[in-house]
Design a protein around this nucleic acid. Structure first.
Lengths: 211, 211
DNA sequence: TCATTAATTTAACGGTGTTAAATTAACAGC
DNA sequence: GCTGTTAATTTAACACCGTTAAATTAATGA
């Protein structure tokens, strides 16, 4: 296909087309199994054209993750409307797990696949913007619960609580994603496991009087 | 190098040599980055010789994981001597996390890397043998605690508890391994996060009277 | 009309996992 | 002590990978 000077809009459009096609392939068959030539064929260009928009495969992956982080924050946005902080905290955990299990391969790319770490300078994603940063959403609600004095008295560091809640939900989801097919373990139902984790967290973190 | 009929012992020896060399390389630089030719060079054979012992790279990886599962169970063996079940349960979590963080790349291969699931027929590993199966160790101690009626009354399924404890510890460790370099999150100290997780679990699972 | 220039492709490089064919050397039987 | 057999090992080759350099295409401005 021939060359005609491309407007910025057209360039942007092609860039996101590459991202979407690549994500679909990565997500369905794994990063390593998908070839640059294959992505190119799907968009009707030659493999080398991708390199006009991304330095290499790794930065393509990085860009995909960025848009997925945004998708996660967006998926959780409606939960932020819940007024009661304790209830909202619970719902965030639930929504996060929903996302992880509905898009396990996206989740894998985002949180379980080794790649160059996120650095804010190279991303359009805005840290600490509740519309774009799901961790900030969690951190915020945990702070609110802390200020409302609903956590049990030994707890002094709300950031630590946020990271623990994240780890708990992430633990259930990531084990499900990477180990559920393994016959080594006789897995209980995934929703039971999620409920149990949430229950344990609530019981372990909140004051007696709140539960 | 020349061929002389190899005894079974010699064959076994070479096989485990391949495993050990491959693991060292995989663990230090990642599975994808290590080449069959490189493994071969380290053991002084040509690349194709590896295929006399393993069908392909994937089954070599699978064999490595098997020996690491054994290593984990062995590392936890001394903990089984602790008489008090609650104390032992706590120590198992601690020991597991120790292993994960001391050998993060082994851990990544074992629990965070996608590969063909464990199937008992293709492995020398014995399920439900406490010397070889770390999950069985956990399941056993949780059952003991359950029978001693130390869990809070809502809890009826000890397997679910075991899987929840595993998920909690795994969540902390795996986030540490794959995300600790990420400047997106202001991570608390890893040992604080582990202590917090254990505390929350204990508080959430055990009866008031036991704590 | 023609040089310029940006978009795109073709060709190529050095590498990969893997397979088929060739080579090597120890052994068994004469 | 030679020779054919056989197992261990290597060499050569295949198809493919990510990536780069060079060539090609066609719209644009003078």
């Amino acid at each position: 296909m021939p060359p005609k000077p491309k407007s910025d809009a057209e360039r942007q459009q092609l860039r996101t087309l590459i991202i979407n096609v690549a994500r679909e392939l990565f997500v369905s068959r794994g990063v390593e199994a998908v070839t640059m030539r294959e992505i190119a064929k799907r968009i009707g260009y030659s493999a080398t054209s991708i390199y006009l928009y991304f330095a290499d495969k790794e930065s393509l992956l990085r860009a995909i993750c960025d848009t997925d982080f945004l998708a996660l924050a967006t998926a959780l946005k409606s939960i932020l409307l819940i007024a009661d902080p304790v209830e909202r905290m619970h719902a965030l955990g639930h929504g996060y797990a929903n996302f992880a299990l509905a898009y396990p391969n996206h989740y894998r790319l985002m949180f379980m696949t080794p790649h160059t770490p996120f650095v804010s300078e190279q991303s359009t994603l805005q840290l600490n913007n509740p519309e774009q940063d799901a961790y900030f959403q969690l951190k915020t609600v945990v702070h609110e619960v802390f200020l409302a004095d609903k956590f049990n008295d030994e707890i002094t560091n709300p950031d630590l609580v946020a990271q623990t809640i994240w780890a708990g939900i992430h633990g259930v989801c990531s084990l499900e994603i990477s180990m559920s097919q393994d016959q080594w373990v006789n897995w209980c139902d995934i929703s039971d496991r999620l409920v149990m984790m949430q229950t344990v967290m609530v019981r372990g973190l909140l004051k007696e009087s709140v539960k």
